[in-house]
């Protein structure tokens, strides 16, 4: 693990966290990017169907979940700031709060899925729902993975495993979590709002 003694004014050669997570992040951006573009071009072939089906989505839930993920992401910024000062317990508390909001996101999304599945909607209902369900379930799984990563980082932070000089793991977990937020920031307007 590398040692970090950087200040906020320095230009870094590589992004915060382990460089490996950044290659993983870029691969994820590529995968989701293809998915987003495929959605847009599928919509171009079935505009009326997509617009009609989109109106059945709960835009309020989508918006609340955006606020939840953005805030959770901000909590991870605070967790990184705390560990950079060597405050392990404060860092762990911010991560717990970030994970908690991840749980809120999952609960709201599950309620949305429950509504749709109860109405008899499935992947095979139509092209819009095929995209809506696969895109959001794919993202949902990334939220779960992010929460598992953050839980591991939080336990290590709580046990004093990081310090002001050595906290690459916290930045690695935070970078992945910000990516999950970043993807939802595009997914929400694309699937719930634009028509």
């Amino acid at each position: 693990m590398t040692t970090d003694t950087t200040t906020p004014d320095e230009i870094l050669a590589t992004p915060p966290g382990d460089l490996a997570i950044w290659f993983f992040i870029f691969a994820e951006l590529l995968a989701f990017g293809v998915f987003f573009v495929a959605y847009a071009f599928a919509r171009a072939r079935h505009v009326a169907l997509f617009n009609e089906s989109q109106q059945q989505l709960d835009i309020t839930s989508g918006a609340i979940n955006t606020l939840v993920l953005i805030t959770s992401s901000y909590f991870m910024v605070r967790a990184v700031a705390a560990i950079k000062q060597g405050l392990s317990r404060e860092c762990a508390r911010w991560i717990v709060a970030a994970i908690g909001l991840g749980g809120v996101f999952l609960a709201i999304k599950l309620a949305e899925f429950h509504d749709k599945f109860s109405a008899g909607i499935s992947l095979s209902t139509n092209t819009f729902y095929m995209f809506y369900l696969s895109l959001t379930i794919f993202h949902f799984m990334h939220v779960i993975l992010g929460m598992v990563i953050l839980a591991a980082v939080m336990l290590k932070a709580k046990g004093g495993g990081y310090s002001a000089e050595n906290h690459t793991g916290v930045e690695t977990g935070a970078s992945y979590w910000h990516m999950v937020d970043l993807l939802w920031i595009i997914l929400f307007p694309l699937v719930y709002v634009i028509h």
Binding site: L12, P15, S73, Y74, V77, A174, H178, D181, L182, I185
Partner: peptide
């Protein structure tokens, strides 16, 4: 959305401090 993603990448992810 473009502005928001740029803000998350540059500030939250810290890319504004990188090459």
């Amino acid at each position: 959305a473009v502005v928001k993603v740029q803000m998350v990448a540059n500030y939250f992810m810290g890319l504004r401090r990188t090459r």
